[in-house]
Simulated assay, not measured.
Amino acid sequence: MGVNKKFLEEKTNQELEEYIKPESKFVQEANQYAYEILKSRGRTFTDEETERFSNKENHEYNKIIHPNYKKSSEILYISVFLGIGNLIWKYDTLDSRLKIFISLIVLAFGFALAYYTSKGIEWFKYVLLVLFGFGLLSIPFIISDIKNDPVIGIINIIQTVLQVWALVLLFKIPKTVNSVNSNV
């Protein structure tokens, strides 16, 4: 979601001053636009302010994130939503507060994995690979799920395929793009 520069151009200089304060609560892209608008309106800036806003390559919104990071995160989100479907389908297994708590933690962890993948953090694909490796230990349970409850088994297989797909996309990202994103 980007910042609408035209919206900021309609603001008064006094309103834009709030954007360029060091403790500003606004996103960096909005701060940068406010700086540029105020500069075009003739406001003079201190050396410190100029340094803070002229170093654009350090701003997170200017960093290039390879599209495979976004695709992988979307696939991981789908996998988590399928996990929610699994829980709904087998709601009777959530018969204690501990099981409910663990299920919520696992789902939150899945959402966190997808979120951090979308940020383009290069080393995160190795975390996903290790976790996927541990997940392969559950193959016998998936096979028994297919026999006992085909819906759950099929959902688990789809989740596994989606996770493999996400990992393949992450490992297909060229190293030159990864070096740009490693410090995000």
Rank of each mutant, 00 (worst) to 15 (best):
M1Q: 10
K5H: 04
K6R: 15
K6G: 04
F7K: 15
L8T: 01
E9P: 04
E9R: 13
T12Q: 08
N13G: 15
E15V: 04
E15K: 14
E18T: 10
K21N: 05
P22K: 10
E23P: 00
S24F: 02
K25D: 09
E29P: 06
Q32T: 07
Q32L: 06
Y33V: 02
A34E: 00
E36I: 09
I37E: 01
I37C: 06
I37N: 04
K39E: 06
S40W: 04
R41A: 13
G42M: 11
T44L: 12
T44H: 08
T44C: 00
T44D: 09
T46Q: 07
T46C: 07
D47I: 08
E48F: 11
E48T: 13
E49K: 03
K56T: 05
E57N: 02
N58R: 13
H59Q: 13
E60V: 15
E60L: 11
E60D: 15
Y61G: 04
I65S: 01
I65D: 04
K71E: 06
K71Q: 12
K71M: 11
S72N: 03
S72V: 06
S73T: 02
E74W: 14
E74D: 09
Y77G: 00
I78Y: 07
L82I: 08
G83Q: 08
G85W: 02
N86E: 13
L87F: 08
L87R: 05
K90P: 00
K90L: 13
D92E: 15
D92W: 09
D92C: 09
T93R: 15
L94Y: 06
S96E: 05
R97F: 10
I100H: 05
S103T: 09
L104N: 10
V106K: 03
L107F: 03
G110N: 01
A112H: 06
A112M: 13
L113P: 00
A114V: 01
Y115H: 14
Y116P: 00
T117N: 05
T117I: 02
G120S: 12
I121F: 10
E122W: 05
F124D: 10
L128M: 03
V130N: 02
L131C: 12
L131N: 08
F132D: 06
F132W: 15
G133K: 06
G133Y: 06
F134S: 12
G135R: 03
G135D: 02
L136P: 07
L136S: 11
P140R: 12
F141Q: 13
I142P: 01
I142Y: 11
S144L: 07
I146R: 03
I146D: 00
I146F: 14
P150V: 06
V151F: 14
V151S: 02
V151I: 15
G153T: 05
I154V: 13
T160Q: 07
L162H: 03
V164Y: 10
W165P: 00
A166H: 02
L167D: 05
L167K: 14
V168Q: 08
L170D: 01
L170G: 04
F171V: 03
F171P: 02
K172P: 04
T176A: 09
V177A: 12
V177G: 05
S179Y: 13
V180R: 01
N181K: 07
S182A: 08
S182E: 14
V184T: 14
